[in-house]
Amino acid sequence: MSSGLRLDRLAKTFPNGTAALGELSADIEAGAFVSLLGPSGCGKSTVLRLIAGLEEPTRGRVGWPQTRGSLGFIFQEPTLMAWATATNNIALPLELAGMAKSEARERARVALEKVGLAGFADALPRELSGGMRMRVSIARALVADPDVLLMDEPFAALDEFTRGKLNDDLLRLWAERRFTGIFVTHSVFEAVYLSQRILILSGRPGRLVADIENPAPYPREPGYRTSAAFNATARDILDALEDVSTC
């Protein structure tokens, strides 16, 4: 299942007068994997929060096909409940939706296996490494089978090696579930590796300055990272970013 959405001249000015986001319009197809790229402070997180309904737009709207699709959100930090085991953290969205505890935890265990943490069902967040916590966070975002998965620089704090592995995990899960993925990142290379399409925002207030297709087929193997096709797309993005002033 997945759901497309339309950003319709979406703009946000915060009560303190900060114009975070200019006017952003984009159609995002169901099942697409799209990255948002741009300088720090240009409103990327704000876009995700607007889509998630955690913030109200000042102007414009987020359009859904009929009703708002179900959402998963992966924050930059793992954002786990420190007092709850990995399983219970992952079961949270299901339990909040009213699913019986036993069933929710059973599904959480399956989700935990999918992110390669089968042996850590009863581990507390502090007993896990940074990368493992992020996996728990991914499993939690996916456990309720969301139509749309919003990701806000989820791997920014991780080392290159872990990051690469999690990129592959993410692509594998996306291939399985076909959710609509919206991925915010600072890394040009991560954006190219993951996405079908890259939206580049200008400095504050954020505006769309480029909309770049990445035609490379999936599944993308690690070898893709050093291919000529990869470099060509990365070059396009770097050129577009050149024109973007920093905030």
Binding site: R49, A52, G53, L54, L71, F73, F75, E77, T79, M81, L92, P93, L96, A97, A144
Partner: peptide, 14 residues
């Protein structure tokens, strides 16, 4: 309370 966790609860309509 961690504001991100608060957002998470809001997102899931707790």
């Amino acid at each position: 309370v961690d504001p991100n966790l608060r957002d998470l609860f809001r997102l899931y309509r707790a």
